[in-house]
Simulated assay, not measured.
Amino acid sequence: MPTLEEQLRQIMADETARLHAAPDLVERVIRSSRRKRMRGRIAALATSLTVVAAAPLYLTVAPGGSMQTPTVSPTPDPPAIDDTPPVPSEPPSLGDLGDGRAFKHIKVGYLPEGLQWSHWSLDFGDSYTTSWNYDGDKNGFYCVQIYVYEGQTVKEVDDRVQLHRDEGEGEEVSIGDRTGYLVVEGVGEDGMKGTPTLILNMGEQRRAEIMFSPTYAKKFADDKAVDRELSKIAEGLTADG
């Protein structure tokens, strides 16, 4: 059976050998985890050696008069801890939407000039969203975003609209034969105005929330011009069921 000193040398040799593994990201994470566990084993064995060296040696007399040294058990290894970070999963999306003018149950008839689909979307089943910007970069800032609520999620947006009414914020609007609510929500970037928003009633079980980013809204002459563009987008929204 190897001595504690031999175990310690072997562990240190193993640790040195691991340092020459290939430097790819996943391997580095796994290797770091293993090194942490190995350092724990080394520290435990070193502590055990110190205790053995410092403890007085007691001799006992065995039957027949022979002298015996009591057996010393090594400290057991600490339990391994799996501290490898989890791999994040991709959020649910609507997939490839082409030009972005049709997404799930909604079709977009009008968008301001110069915008293209951002190649970004989220799909949570009863609520889903996508956006448009200048360059189609999914990591870029949005200009226009539409969030659709269906089924049970309609109550959430209706409650929010009612809160705006109670606070005296925003106004009721008519969009053709449909109703909507115009309001500026939240606080914008760097203390600017919040997000110009039109919430459109598209039927008993569907609402569409149309938003301009505060930065994009600044390109229009005034608030009335922003409201007109939001209303034109709302007019062009249709549903397939």
Rank of each mutant, 00 (worst) to 15 (best):
M1S: 03
E6D: 10
E6C: 01
E6P: 00
Q7S: 04
R9Q: 04
D14R: 01
E15V: 14
R18G: 07
R18F: 15
L19Y: 06
H20V: 03
E27A: 13
I30W: 09
S32I: 03
M38I: 14
R39C: 10
A44K: 12
A44R: 12
L45S: 06
V52I: 13
A53N: 06
A53M: 11
P56C: 02
L57K: 13
Y58H: 15
Y58L: 15
T60P: 00
P63N: 13
G64F: 13
G65M: 15
Q68F: 08
T69A: 14
P70L: 12
P70Y: 12
T71D: 13
T71I: 14
V72Y: 14
P74I: 05
T75N: 07
D77R: 07
A80P: 00
P86F: 06
S89E: 15
P91K: 06
S93Y: 02
G100V: 02
K104R: 15
K104G: 09
H105C: 03
I106L: 15
G114K: 01
L115K: 00
L115F: 10
S118N: 12
H119V: 00
G125C: 07
D126I: 02
S127K: 01
T130Q: 01
S131P: 04
N133A: 09
Y134K: 05
Y134C: 02
D135A: 06
Q145V: 01
Y147N: 04
Y149R: 01
E150K: 10
E150I: 00
Q152V: 13
V154S: 03
H164T: 07
H164Q: 15
R165T: 05
E167L: 11
G168Y: 09
G170E: 09
G170A: 07
E171I: 12
S174M: 09
I175Y: 05
T179K: 12
D190V: 07
M192G: 08
M192E: 11
T195N: 02
M202N: 05
Q205V: 06
R206V: 15
R206G: 07
M211A: 07
F212N: 03
S213H: 06
T215D: 09
K219D: 09
F220I: 12
A221V: 13
A225I: 05
R228G: 08
E229Q: 11
L230W: 10
E235C: 03
E235G: 04
L237F: 08
G241E: 09
G241W: 05
